[in-house]
Design a protein around this nucleic acid. Sequence first.
DNA 1: CAGAATCATAGCCAACAATATATGGTTTTC
DNA 2: GAAAACCATATATTGTTGGCTATGATTCTG
Lengths: 304, 304
Amino acid sequence: MMRVTMRQLQVFEAVARLRSYSRAADEIHVAQPTVSKQIRLLHEEIGLPLIELIGKKVFLTQAGEELYATCSAWLDSWGRFEQTIADLKGLKQGRLSIAAVTTTKYFMPRMLGPFCSQYPGIDISLEVVNRDRLLERMAQNQDDLYVMGIPPEDISTQSEPFLENPLVVLAPQFHPLVAKRNIQFSEVAHEQFILREHGSGTRLAVEKVFEERGFPLRVKMELGSNEAIKQAVAGGLGLSVLSKSTLNLDATQRDIAILDVDGFPIKRYWYLVRPRDKQLSVVAKTFMEFLKQHIDLLNPYGSR
Amino acid sequence: MMRVTMRQLQVFEAVARLRSYSRAADEIHVAQPTVSKQIRLLHEEIGLPLIELIGKKVFLTQAGEELYATCSAWLDSWGRFEQTIADLKGLKQGRLSIAAVTTTKYFMPRMLGPFCSQYPGIDISLEVVNRDRLLERMAQNQDDLYVMGIPPEDISTQSEPFLENPLVVLAPQFHPLVAKRNIQFSEVAHEQFILREHGSGTRLAVEKVFEERGFPLRVKMELGSNEAIKQAVAGGLGLSVLSKSTLNLDATQRDIAILDVDGFPIKRYWYLVRPRDKQLSVVAKTFMEFLKQHIDLLNPYGSR
DNA sequence: CAGAATCATAGCCAACAATATATGGTTTTC
DNA sequence: GAAAACCATATATTGTTGGCTATGATTCTG
């Protein structure tokens, strides 16, 4: 009984609705015998008469009524499905799920805003998590896109930089070097540093620079949050190196200053990452396109 | 987009449910590439990816989820439909609509009773109407079966007798002829008669007999109801000829007697009538079968 | 790392769905 | 009663579906 075809149901529905074979044939744009045949096949398949012709009038049997109800409902829900697909294609609706590492919370929301207003039907979810959580989510294919400072080596991912992510040296407002330009690296190398824990992208980069320059890195304190580090620097506990993104750009930071040290800012990037063989949804593609177009406007460090 | 086939949806549903191509292939008893192909066709038809393979795990895209929901619902409602059909075939449910002329109300309910209890899932509707109303209903195909004393000449109907319907001569309890056997027709011919109106089947039969025997029929009163006629006869207003069915069989009629007149009872039948080219429902067929089997038990005048 | 499991692709084929045209029989309508 | 409308049947054709086998690529699992 699974051999009933959609076409047959479509034809039947038209006949049942219009109570006429020939009008149904017109509506579907086929010849009348085609309709007759489809209906006959349906009868044979189901094993009960569905339609009665008394005189030339079309009546439905009880089984016919049942089928009519069933396939009306079906055509209805299929119609809704087609509409949904059309909407998805036309970006009139959809979901975009992004997971990003913590530091991005300083600028990601700002980038999502304009996208949201251009595509009001699209729901965006931005999960802000630490790097480990993010990798977990990636492994489980929970999101469309991921944003991180250091893309995984893993060949099963694809990544591209989309935004500069300079690392700058921070010092307390009244540190002696604040006013100086072109500070030599050696001048800050002996300072005490307050950094993120081992494994953090920023920490890795700093260690690498010190190693290249041949200076030992003196870490006074490890803190798990950028905010805490800024507070510590402001309090005069030491210097730090952080992504410039962490600085509040609007209200000028009163108690912290950026030192103009040679070799800084370290040029790094924020990467958009996705599973290599994940077919991006239309929404996700559009979002990436959108980012590329608007990046100049949004990038506060854009090298214009 | 109407070219999606049921088979494809069935395959997709299985894949989506089992989250595996090969297990789906097993379940449906086809080779794995067949599943791959169906899914690919579906993708092409819909124009959006529905399934993602990350590693070897099966994920559904948003469009996939939509389709899954849609076609789960469909399979569900199709299943219910199949069940309904099976029930109809197996007589576990159904409707039987019968229209019968007024006089049959004295015995039809009694015949329906056992059928009802044998097929408790079947709803029976018995419409008791006059002959004209019944013909109207027949023209509009409102019922499955019709019961009447004189089937229409109309070739567009088919009829078969199923029950005897003898017409008997009724007289008041204390009429002089009540005690007599083998009464000559001439002995009652001069009596006053109380009959149904012209056009009634009974009336026609009586007129015919009188004509055959060469006596004028003297009609004292025409009444529209059998009950009224019985009352009139009991009241001594005259004799009458009625279907024996109209007499209450249980409680012996105290004030009316049947005369044993030569030529009576007139042998007539109740007919089951149906539109010639109406395919009978399984229920209706079963009911006719049932009647034939039980008629001897039910027929109070059976010629055993 | 080897083997097992899983999915994709290619190529082929039988079966069938879907359709048209031509024609004939009823029923309805004018 | 003739014409029109309507449905059934017969037959031929065409494209597609649904299926298989064989093989290759990738990923997961001991």
